[in-house]
Computed example of a mutant assay.
Amino acid sequence: MRTHVALLRGINVGGSGKVPMADLRRLLTERGFTEVATYIQSGNVVLTSSVADPAAVATTIEEILRDDFAVPRPVVTFTRDEYLAALAANPFPQVTEPKQLHAIFRAAAPTEAELTGLDTALAAERAAGGQGDAAVIGRVVYLHLPDGLGRSTLAARLTSRSRAADGGGTARNWATVGKLAELLGS
């Protein structure tokens, strides 16, 4: 059995994509997942599965979202070890305020074009006088946003649906990242 972290994009945000977590936990259990736990209402799931492949786990959860909730959303899944490695790889360990540090978890590592887009977004952040910074390690884009997520040119460019620079990933603040690690028993 493998433990996975599944991050559902756009769940219970702004009145759309409504997915009750109790119902999601029940449906995941009915599909054979065990030790299913959720954290807050925004689509953070830790579960155990006989399926080793995180992409296959994501596909099953996407099917549940589409078929049972009529909420088609992408799901990004990491194994327990991958998730904990991403937590340990934080390139901004000096940031102590969890609201200033975010991670965009992606299904795949950024392409060269997406890395170029990140460089462009960083340049725009600097031109606007922002202090934000970003780093990519594997399938995770780490964002240090000292001015806050809502005021960051960098964050706006990276999470814009029209640009898809986030590669279909889903962002979490560092407090949530840490809480999920606690659910993993780390």
Rank of each mutant, 00 (worst) to 15 (best):
P54K: 06
P54Q: 10
T59L: 09
I61D: 02
E62F: 07
E62I: 06
E63H: 14
R66L: 11
F69K: 06
A70Q: 14
V71E: 08
R73V: 11
P74Q: 13
V76W: 05
T77W: 05
F78N: 04
F78H: 11
T79K: 08
T79F: 08
R80H: 15
R80E: 14
E82Q: 11
A85S: 15
A86Y: 04
A86L: 08
L87F: 13
A89R: 07
A89I: 06
N90M: 02
N90V: 01
P91D: 00
F92A: 02
V95T: 02
E97R: 13
P98R: 05
K99T: 10
A108H: 11
P110W: 03
E112D: 14
A113K: 10
E114L: 07
L115Y: 05
T116P: 08
T116Q: 15
L122S: 03
L122W: 05
A124F: 05
A124Q: 09
E125Q: 08
R126E: 14
A127I: 01
A128S: 11
G130T: 05
Q131N: 14
G132W: 01
V136E: 04
R139C: 09
V140I: 08
Y142K: 10
L143C: 05
H144N: 10
P146K: 01
P146W: 03
D147K: 11
D147R: 13
G148T: 04
G150H: 10
G150N: 10
R151Y: 13
S152I: 04
S152P: 01
L158H: 00
T159R: 07
T159I: 09
T159G: 00
R161K: 13
S162G: 15
A164H: 14
G168F: 06
G169I: 02
G169A: 00
T170F: 01
A171I: 12
A171F: 09
A171E: 07
N173H: 03
T176V: 08
T176P: 02
T176Y: 02
G178N: 08
K179F: 07
L180A: 07
E182T: 11
G185S: 11
G185L: 12
